[in-house]
């Protein structure tokens, strides 16, 4: 799949933002006043900023409100609805903390649950797609959720949780890559089933329908070199998981924490880039690609 910048930014940042909201909702930490304001601002900038970024790739952002209507069937619609609900709930909760020094515990819990649900909805947009076998698997929501809560914990300064959660996320990441690499083949979809010509012999795409490119090829038939990918994977593991864990094991220091956060975000960006770039859409079969 084409690794669209807006989508990578959106999923990465909003995942972090909602992850932070989870911890804030749980009261870990439970800041008040100006500190609370700063925390919530960061969370909202990330979560809402991501949401805004996601509208960049829409053909008609002005019609975005319509996306709230189909929550019964569409994960994308659910994501819209839940994310807005989350932001509203957490706004009320945050206002309590910032302005009234009050923590409405049940509201925080509700907000945390909604935050998780938002991330789950986001991940399900990808995980539901049978057309992209690499995504169409429990590891997709697991990874999104793990990264969100781990990154959130890191931002929230919950190092106790952040450390194991990052390790878990790293583990899920590795499983996602390892199983993902085999999944396309495992699903049995091939140029033979795509064309129905399997019985006749070995099939090779000969002439494409157009000598130029088209929307489908740009959007879904993206190929990256294997070498390039494995290097990026190492980088992502190192920055996203390894380095933050290592830094957290050192005695606490604000600069180190900041470094850990930056490394983590960079690593997650790389992971997310790979999430898209490595995803093989079945339509590629028609174009002689996988």
């Amino acid at each position: 799949m084409h690794p669209a910048r807006s989508v990578i930014i959106f999923t990465t940042l909003s995942g972090l933002g909602f992850g932070l909201l989870v911890w804030l909702g749980l009261g870990m930490p439970s800041p008040k006043g100006l500190v609370a304001f700063v925390f919530f601002t960061i969370a909202y900038l990330l979560a809402a900023g991501g949401l805004v970024a996601s509208t960049f790739h829409l053909g008609h952002p002005e019609r975005a409100l319509r996306a709230f209507t189909q929550w019964r069937t569409s994960w994308l619609s659910r994501e819209a609805v839940i994310s807005v609900a989350t932001l509203l709930v957490m706004a009320a909760y945050g206002a309590g903390l910032v302005f009234w020094d009050t923590r409405i515990v049940w509201l925080g819990w509700l907000g945390a649950a909604l935050s998780l649900a938002t991330v789950l909805a986001t991940s399900m947009i990808y995980a539901q797609l049978k057309t992209v076998p690499r995504w169409n698997h429990w590891t997709t929501p697991a990874l999104f959720l793990a990264l969100s809560v781990a990154g959130g914990a890191l931002l929230a300064g919950q190092l106790r949780f952040a450390l194991p959660l990052l390790a878990v996320a790293g583990g899920v990441q590795v499983v996602a890559w390892m199983t993902g690499d085999k999944r396309f083949r495992g699903r049995g979809t091939s140029v033979a089933t795509a064309t129905g010509l399997g019985g006749m012999g070995d099939i090779r795409a000969f002439e494409p329908p157009h000598t130029g490119t088209n929307y489908l090829m740009r959007e879904m038939v993206h190929v990256i070199g294997r070498k390039h990918a494995s290097r990026l994977r190492m980088l992502s593991l190192l920055l996203g998981y390894g380095l933050p864990i290592a830094l957290m094991m050192l005695p606490f220091n604000h600069w180190l924490a900041l470094l850990a956060v930056i490394a983590h975000i960079t690593g997650v960006f790389a992971s997310r880039w790979l999430f898209f770039a490595e995803a093989e859409h079945v339509v590629g079969l028609y174009y002689g690609r996988k």
Partner: peptide
């Protein structure tokens, strides 16, 4: 249509542009 493109991703056949 908001032009989100998700339906094109969901189609296995490349039928949407």
């Amino acid at each position: 249509c908001i032009g989100c493109g998700l339906c094109a991703w969901a189609c296995p056949y490349g039928a949407r542009e």
